[in-house]
Simulated assay, not measured.
Amino acid sequence: MAINLPSQRGRGRRAPMADINVTPLVDVMLVLLIIFMVTAPLLTAGVPVQLPDARAKAVEQDQKPVEISLDRAGKLYVDKDEVSEALLPDILSQLVAKGDPAKPPQVLLRADKGLDYGRVMRVMGELNRAGLNRVALVTVEQGSK
């Protein structure tokens, strides 16, 4: 960093300062980083479901999975769209037809912990019948509440 020393020539003139102050830029970038870190987890919530606890680790994914959710009232959602149980087999067969036949898409099944076990098993049976065997049951990690 250069220091401007007073010179005897041209006392009334100052040399232009060629240094750029990056401190305000760094401050703004850090604030934006904190904002994105705080808001990013809030953007992933889809259908409000109270998930059960488990000690399982997170599943690694190579492509965007299909989310199927069952809320406390028993409503069925594929991604964020509400569907009836009668239309579920057609929707699942369309998903299988769209994807790679050698590698069907992974399905994340989110079900409210207060639901009847039979209701969840009916949805899993439809998934199996459609050929979607890569099903992961989504839970809340213990201690993260």
Rank of each mutant, 00 (worst) to 15 (best):
Ala2Ile: 08
Ile3Gln: 07
Ile3Phe: 01
Ile3Cys: 07
Ile3Trp: 05
Ile3Tyr: 05
Asn4Asp: 09
Leu5Arg: 13
Leu5Val: 10
Pro6Lys: 11
Pro6Glu: 02
Ser7Leu: 10
Gly10Cys: 01
Gly10Arg: 11
Arg11Gln: 05
Gly12Asp: 07
Met17Gly: 03
Ala18Pro: 10
Ala18Ser: 15
Ala18Ile: 14
Ile20Val: 13
Ile20Leu: 07
Asn21Pro: 09
Val22Gly: 00
Val22Ile: 13
Thr23Pro: 07
Thr23Trp: 11
Pro24Gly: 05
Pro24Asp: 00
Leu25Gly: 08
Val26Tyr: 00
Leu30Phe: 03
Leu30Met: 08
Val31Ser: 00
Leu32Arg: 02
Leu33Val: 05
Ile34Cys: 13
Ile35Arg: 12
Ile35Glu: 08
Ile35Cys: 14
Phe36Val: 02
Met37Cys: 10
Met37His: 05
Val38Asn: 07
Thr39Cys: 00
Thr39Ile: 06
Ala40Tyr: 15
Ala40Phe: 13
Pro41His: 00
Pro41Tyr: 00
Leu43Tyr: 03
Leu43Val: 03
Pro48Arg: 04
Val49Asp: 03
Val49Glu: 03
Gln50Ala: 07
Leu51Ala: 12
Asp53Arg: 09
Ala54Glu: 02
Arg55His: 08
Lys57Met: 03
Lys57Cys: 05
Glu60Ser: 12
Gln63Ile: 02
Gln63His: 00
Val66Trp: 00
Val66Gly: 04
Glu67Lys: 08
Ser69Leu: 01
Asp71His: 02
Asp71Arg: 06
Asp71Thr: 05
Ala73Leu: 00
Ala73Cys: 04
Lys75Thr: 10
Lys75Phe: 06
Val83Tyr: 03
Ser84Lys: 07
Ser84Met: 04
Ser84Asp: 08
Ser84Thr: 15
Ala86Pro: 04
Leu88Cys: 09
Leu88Asp: 08
Leu88His: 08
Asp90His: 02
Asp90Glu: 06
Ile91Asn: 03
Ser93Gly: 09
Ser93Met: 12
Gln94Met: 14
Leu95Ile: 11
Lys98Trp: 01
Lys98Arg: 14
Gly99Trp: 07
Asp100Leu: 11
Asp100Ile: 12
Ala102Lys: 13
Lys103Thr: 08
Lys103Trp: 09
Pro105Val: 01
Val107Arg: 01
Val107Ile: 15
Leu108Glu: 10
Leu109Ser: 11
Leu109His: 10
Leu109Glu: 04
Leu109Val: 11
Lys113Phe: 15
Leu115Lys: 13
Gly118Ala: 15
Gly118Asp: 15
Val120Ser: 11
Arg122Tyr: 10
Val123Gln: 08
Val123Arg: 10
Gly125Ser: 15
Gly125Leu: 12
Leu127Arg: 14
Leu127Tyr: 14
Leu127Trp: 13
Asn128Gln: 15
Arg129Asp: 04
Arg129Ala: 12
Ala130Ile: 12
Asn133Gly: 12
Asn133Thr: 15
Asn133Glu: 13
Leu137Thr: 14
Thr139Lys: 09
Val140Ile: 09
Val140Asp: 12
Gln142Trp: 06
Gln142Phe: 07
Gln142Arg: 11
Gly143Thr: 13
Gly143Ser: 11
